[in-house]
Computed example of a mutant assay.
Amino acid sequence: MSNASIVTPQEWETARQELLVKEKAHTRAGDALAAERRRMPRMPVDTSYAFEGPNGPASLLDLFEGRSQLIVYRFFFEPGVGTWPEGGCVGCSLMADQDAHPAHLNARGITFAYVSRAPQAEIARLKERMGWDVPWYTLTDSFDADFGVDEWHGTNVFLREGEQVFRTYFVNGRGDEALGSTFSYLDVAPFGRQEEWEESPAGTPQSPTYRWWRRHDEYGTEAGKWDDTLDRVLGAGEQKRA
């Protein structure tokens, strides 16, 4: 048993409401940070980095898979780490277990991928064992050193404009611990959640709040049409956001 006090339901609700004020302030501060993050300066990436993928050689542009935004997590799976070759870094593996289904990020024009030093045969085996469904590439050059992930895990974010790639954001350490959900990745992406309530730079693509949501196997299908009966429920939730 903890040393927390035992109270009546009314006293508990009072304490919850007092804490809720602070939690809402924390959420609003997170929204403001995400808005500032979307205004980070961009760094051109002019080096032609090379990777190995399940289908052979791949460039950094290839990792985008035709989308405009790319989030890359450096997964430590290589000789000398963890229980190689049976498994990779336990912390990276925990991160991978909590990563949301990539279809939701894909729907917002984002590709999420892992990069490691392990060869593709070992990556394929581990993906099969763990049930992970994220594109995973083998590092072949200085990409990890150049982007701060040669000695420690980290997440790099990129934006593509035509053939030009820009680095827009980087987080590592405990900052990585907060990632994993669809929304946490959207909040570090160049265009954010792309919903109308967000405070974003002019020209950022945006759509009505919530209405892009689908079950992960229904994006772009007849079954994936928005159910208008949800507008009332989600509209009520939007009012509570304030």
Rank of each mutant, 00 (worst) to 15 (best):
R67Y: 03
W136K: 03
A242W: 09
E196I: 00
R174D: 09
F64C: 05
R241Y: 07
R215H: 14
Q120A: 08
Y210Q: 02
A189K: 00
T168W: 05
T168E: 10
R38V: 01
N156Y: 02
D141G: 08
F147G: 02
G30C: 09
E161T: 04
K240S: 09
H216D: 09
S2N: 14
T140V: 03
I6E: 11
M43G: 03
E222H: 06
L94V: 05
P54R: 12
Q120V: 14
R42Y: 06
D99Y: 14
W84D: 05
G109K: 03
Q98T: 15
A202Y: 04
F191E: 00
D227N: 15
F191C: 01
A50T: 11
Q194R: 03
W212H: 11
V7Y: 08
G91S: 10
A34S: 14
D99I: 14
V21P: 07
F112L: 14
V233G: 01
Q120K: 09
L19I: 06
L234N: 06
W132F: 11
S68T: 13
D141F: 05
W136F: 15
N172F: 04
N172E: 12
L186G: 00
A145F: 06
P57L: 09
G53C: 07
E199I: 06
Q164I: 05
A34M: 07
E36I: 12
P41Q: 06
G87R: 12
H26Y: 06
P102T: 11
N3K: 13
Y114G: 06
D176I: 13
Q98S: 15
T83L: 14
W213T: 04
L105M: 13
T168I: 08
G180R: 04
Q206N: 01
R38A: 14
G56F: 12
R67S: 02
A189I: 01
H101P: 04
A29P: 01
E238V: 10
D228E: 13
S5T: 08
Y210T: 04
Q120N: 15
T14M: 13
D99V: 11
E218Y: 07
N3M: 09
G220D: 07
F64R: 05
